[in-house]
Lab assay of single mutants.
Amino acid sequence: QTVHVKGVQYHFPNPEEAVKFALKVAKDLGGRVEFHGDEIHVE
């Protein structure tokens, strides 16, 4: 599972961890989380 944050990719073997990370980052940055297939983008 890959999380993209402002052009940087973070790889997580566990999808659940990836989602938790993405939600935390989005909250910290005041952004939103978008799901694109296997990828999660924080915009």
Results as ranks from 00 to 15, higher is better:
Gln1His: 14
Gln1Met: 15
Gln1Pro: 09
Gln1Arg: 15
Thr2Phe: 08
Thr2Gly: 03
Thr2Met: 07
Thr2Tyr: 08
Val3Ser: 01
Val3His: 01
Val3Thr: 00
His4Ser: 09
His4Leu: 13
His4Lys: 09
Val5Pro: 00
Val5Arg: 02
Val5Asp: 01
Lys6Glu: 10
Lys6Arg: 12
Lys6Gln: 12
Gly7Trp: 05
Gly7Lys: 04
Val8Glu: 08
Val8Lys: 12
Val8Tyr: 09
Val8Gly: 04
Val8Asp: 05
Gln9Trp: 12
Gln9Tyr: 11
Gln9Ile: 15
Gln9Gly: 05
Gln9Cys: 14
Tyr10Cys: 04
Tyr10Val: 04
Tyr10Leu: 04
His11Val: 09
His11Phe: 13
His11Thr: 10
His11Tyr: 14
Phe12His: 02
Phe12Arg: 00
Phe12Asp: 00
Phe12Trp: 03
Pro13Ala: 14
Pro13Trp: 10
Pro13Phe: 10
Pro13Gly: 10
Asn14Gln: 05
Asn14Glu: 05
Asn14Tyr: 06
Asn14Trp: 04
Asn14Gly: 06
Asn14Met: 04
Asn14Arg: 06
Asn14Ser: 14
Pro15Ser: 13
Pro15Asn: 12
Pro15Lys: 15
Pro15Ala: 13
Pro15Trp: 15
Glu16Asn: 08
Glu16Cys: 11
Glu16Trp: 12
Glu17Thr: 08
Glu17Gln: 09
Glu17Phe: 06
Glu17Leu: 10
Glu17Ala: 11
Glu17Pro: 02
Glu17Asn: 06
Glu17Arg: 05
Ala18Ser: 03
Ala18Asp: 00
Ala18Phe: 02
Val19Met: 15
Val19Trp: 15
Val19Cys: 13
Val19Glu: 07
Val19His: 09
Val19Asn: 06
Val19Leu: 15
Lys20Glu: 11
Lys20Tyr: 08
Lys20Thr: 08
Lys20Ala: 13
Lys20Gln: 11
Phe21Tyr: 08
Phe21Ala: 02
Phe21Val: 02
Phe21Ser: 01
Phe21Trp: 13
Phe21Leu: 02
Ala22Ile: 03
Ala22Ser: 03
Ala22Arg: 00
Leu23Ile: 13
Leu23Met: 13
Leu23Gln: 11
Lys24Ala: 14
Lys24Trp: 09
Lys24Pro: 00
Lys24Ile: 08
Lys24Arg: 11
Val25His: 05
Val25Gly: 01
Val25Pro: 00
Val25Ile: 13
Val25Trp: 11
Ala26Gln: 03
Ala26Trp: 03
Ala26Lys: 02
Ala26Tyr: 02
Ala26Val: 05
Ala26Pro: 00
Ala26Gly: 03
Lys27Trp: 10
Lys27His: 12
Lys27Ser: 11
Lys27Gln: 12
Lys27Asp: 08
Lys27Val: 08
Asp28Val: 13
Asp28Gln: 14
Asp28Pro: 03
Asp28Asn: 10
Asp28His: 12
Asp28Gly: 08
Asp28Glu: 15
Leu29Ala: 05
Leu29Gly: 05
Leu29Gln: 06
Leu29Thr: 13
Leu29Pro: 01
Gly30Asp: 08
Gly30His: 09
Gly30Val: 04
Gly30Phe: 07
Gly30Tyr: 06
Gly31Met: 14
Gly31Asn: 03
Gly31Asp: 03
Gly31Ile: 05
Gly31Tyr: 12
Arg32Leu: 07
Arg32Met: 07
Arg32Ile: 10
Arg32Trp: 15
Arg32Cys: 12
Val33Met: 07
Val33Leu: 11
Val33Lys: 00
Val33Pro: 02
Val33Thr: 03
Val33Gly: 01
Glu34Asn: 10
Glu34Pro: 01
Glu34Ala: 12
Glu34Lys: 12
Glu34Leu: 13
Phe35Asn: 03
Phe35Glu: 03
Phe35Gln: 05
Phe35Tyr: 12
Phe35Ile: 10
His36Gly: 04
His36Leu: 10
His36Trp: 12
His36Ser: 07
Gly37Lys: 07
Gly37Ser: 06
Gly37Val: 05
Gly37His: 08
Gly37Ala: 07
Asp38Leu: 11
Asp38Cys: 15
Asp38Trp: 09
Asp38Lys: 12
Asp38Arg: 11
Asp38Met: 11
Glu39Thr: 10
Glu39His: 14
Glu39Arg: 08
Ile40Leu: 07
Ile40Pro: 02
Ile40Trp: 06
Ile40Tyr: 05
Ile40Asp: 01
Ile40Asn: 01
His41Pro: 00
His41Lys: 07
His41Cys: 08
His41Met: 08
His41Ala: 04
Val42Phe: 03
Val42Asp: 01
Val42Ile: 10
Glu43Ala: 12
Glu43Thr: 15
Glu43Asn: 12
Glu43Val: 15
Glu43Met: 15
Glu43Cys: 15
